[in-house]
Design a protein around this nucleic acid. Structure first.
Lengths: 148, 148
DNA sequence: CCATCTAGTCAGATCATCTGACCATCGTCA
DNA sequence: TGACGATGGTCAGATGATCTGACTAGATGG
């Protein structure tokens, strides 16, 4: 801005700030807890791994990157010990990406920070406004998330 | 997801979907209108150029990238004719990045799409909920945007 | 049992981003 | 007024993230 302080920014941009802030806080907390070899892109992929493992193709689709990119990031995550690849019992072509021990520990840290940051936001906005915000964003996802 | 459908996602992630959707829509419309040489990163920088020009350092700070990265992206934008660098009359060290003709035309397209997308979202959420959403996001920015 | 689709990998390129070092100018305070 | 720290910006080089295109192995349905 600097001068274009036409405060009414578009909703997409307004959504950017909280997202970025949350991501930065989580990454910082992870780094402080010793998980300092995680990049944002790795985190975005890792965050989408389901409890029983997720296929690479699904991860790629949900994170909106190509299979190649997802594969690359999963390679790194596996090398750092956060995830492991196991065969998919239902399909010999596929392999499931699953959290490894180190990954689970990191997730626990991330979850704690999420809760903490949301508490701060709630303190700033108030309980009711925060609940409305969550409701609106959740409904908005119906029209903005093609992979819901 | 795929199975971890614990619908209550953290607010940061929920913010991601609208932001991504808006960005994608704008970029697609620009590409369709002939501005197909814009990358998302270039767009993010360009979106922050004020009406009378903005310093590189300010652009970098607001987009949360280094001066080098911002300079690199501005180079590309200049080469494609979207922006131009002019001397800052108030400081001989500085140069202002300003929209060029092609840039202004592209901005006009982007603005139209913004309005269009917001209208769709409003139709989905309702007038009141959308207004509340905007209000909440704007207030949230007070604690999530260090460069406000 | 063949045609086709899906899961994933390999290779190579490009773009985005960073760190570190550097130069020119500004602003200030002795 | 002139030396010095702060600021605006660039250069060089490295790494990371991402893409397109081509490929292999296994699944699936007539």
């Amino acid at each position: 801005m600097t001068e274009s302080d036409e405060e009414r920014q578009n909703l997409g941009v307004l959504c950017f700030y909280p997202h970025r802030a949350m991501e930065a806080r989580i990454l910082a907390a992870l780094a402080a807890a010793g998980y300092d070899d995680l990049t944002p892109a790795q985190g975005r992929i890792a965050a989408r791994i389901g409890p029983r493992g997720t296929r690479l193709t699904d991860l790629a689709e949900q994170a909106l990157v190509t299979k190649q990119t997802a594969g690359h990031l999963v390679d790194q995550l596996a090398r750092s010990g956060y995830v492991e690849r196991v065969p998919d019992p239902t399909d010999a072509r596929a392999r499931l990406v699953r959290m490894a021990e180190r990954g689970l520990a990191a997730v626990a840290v991330a979850r704690r920070v999420e809760v903490e940051v949301e508490a701060e936001w709630t303190a700033h906005l108030g309980e009711e406004a925060t609940a409305q915000l969550r409701a609106a964003l959740t409904r908005l996802r119906e029209v903005t998330d093609p992979y819901r």
